[in-house]
Design a protein around this nucleic acid. Structure first.
Lengths: 205, 205
DNA sequence: GATTGAAGTAATCGAATGATTACAACCACG
DNA sequence: CGTGGTTGTAATCATTCGATTACTTCAATC
């Protein structure tokens, strides 16, 4: 159907490359990923990736920025949903928002690439170029939780801490190991409580 | 005084190299680190590193194993202290253990290398060789919290989640940025509450 | 004092990788 | 047509890096 090797406007091609780069950077990290792997994942040649983004570093920065922007957008959409539901159902307070945001996060990190690209960014805090981008993204999330979601400091703390634990469990593969390993399953139980079945199902996909 | 380029037994040299590798792998990640950087950090030549460990991958695995072992040892020491204190003071329950373990963790991750080597290991869950080592280490921590510390599932959940958030805040540099950035400082406040001053002081060193 | 084995390095090799260059194919517009 | 800009690639270059080889130095032991 779709004839491969079609000529595509550069804007669209950039988006394809960024999507592919999210997967590749997520799996291999910034240093471990190669522009050639990204190129092949996007179905084009390696020099073209370099020409469109100038530098591997620049490609990573744009990939990270895009991932952070999608994270924020998903959170804002979840907040809008929660507020719409509150108008109708009358529940009112931050409880619904917290639940919706949590669900939105779980949906996002179903994509291993998204999850891991964010984490790799956060781990490069000492890089003079990438570090500030990652920090800024983290702080944007914080401000959104504080100003738009109206979370209390304790809510913010718990939300972020749970998110980071989810990240680590999924990234390290403990989530997948829970199928075979009793202790891993119990650990997932501690973390996710009643939601564990849902999480495990998502993590498998 | 200490004449550089002394001949040293291999066992001792291995330990020196592992200590240096913890710093280098932590800062640059597995893929980003080079055997040459490790060698120079340990004050020896690059081929010798390769000869003592066979492979960069093997070096990383041993570095990760050592870091995980030190983490567990520090936790066990903290538990012993807490129990000794409980015998004397009569406080009794898990409260003291939780506090001691938290303190032990903060002391450990003062060393950026330790912190980041662990994180890099956890993020390589999909690597067929390194992934299992990292997962096994994580599960060892879980079992220790459950069986030796006697934590409830909820205590385990909170302890691990807080640990992962601390990791991320320190790795991304938000902790350091708190000196200049108002929002970063507020975020650190949400996370650490009363302990924030202590953490910031440690993070600077 | 010759020998043996351990500690350690200089030199170098082959593969991988980011980047550059030069060129090809295609489309729109005059 | 033809010409100029856009999309894209093949070939290749310089560097880096993990690993290997061959060598040196030193201490102990017989």
């Amino acid at each position: 159907m779709t004839p491969r090797s079609e000529r595509i406007p550069a804007d669209e091609r950039r988006e394809q490359i960024l999507a592919a780069a999210t997967t590749v950077f997520g799996e291999l990290g910034y240093a471990g990923a190669t522009t050639d792997r990204v190129a092949r994942a996007a179905g084009i040649s390696q020099p073209y990736v370099v020409r469109l983004f100038g530098t591997k570093e620049q490609l990573f920065i744009e990939t990270l920025r895009r991932t952070l922007a999608r994270l924020l957008a998903a959170f804002r959409a979840a907040l809008a949903e929660a507020d719409a539901g509150a108008d109708a159902g009358g529940d009112g307070d931050g409880e619904a928002r917290e639940a919706r945001l949590g669900e939105a996060y779980l949906e996002l990190v179903e994509d291993r690439g998204t999850l891991l690209t964010l984490l790799h960014g956060f781990m490069m805090g000492s890089d003079p170029v990438i570090g500030p981008v990652a920090r800024d993204g983290f702080l944007q999330v914080f401000r959104m939780l504080r100003d738009e979601a109206g979370f209390t400091p304790d809510q913010i703390h718990r939300f972020l801490a749970d998110g980071m634990l989810i990240n680590t469990l999924l990234a390290s593969g403990v989530g997948l190991a829970a199928k075979r390993d009793r202790d891993a399953a119990e650990l997932m139980d501690c973390t996710f409580g009643a939601h564990v079945a849902e999480v495990l199902e998502r993590a498998s996909a």
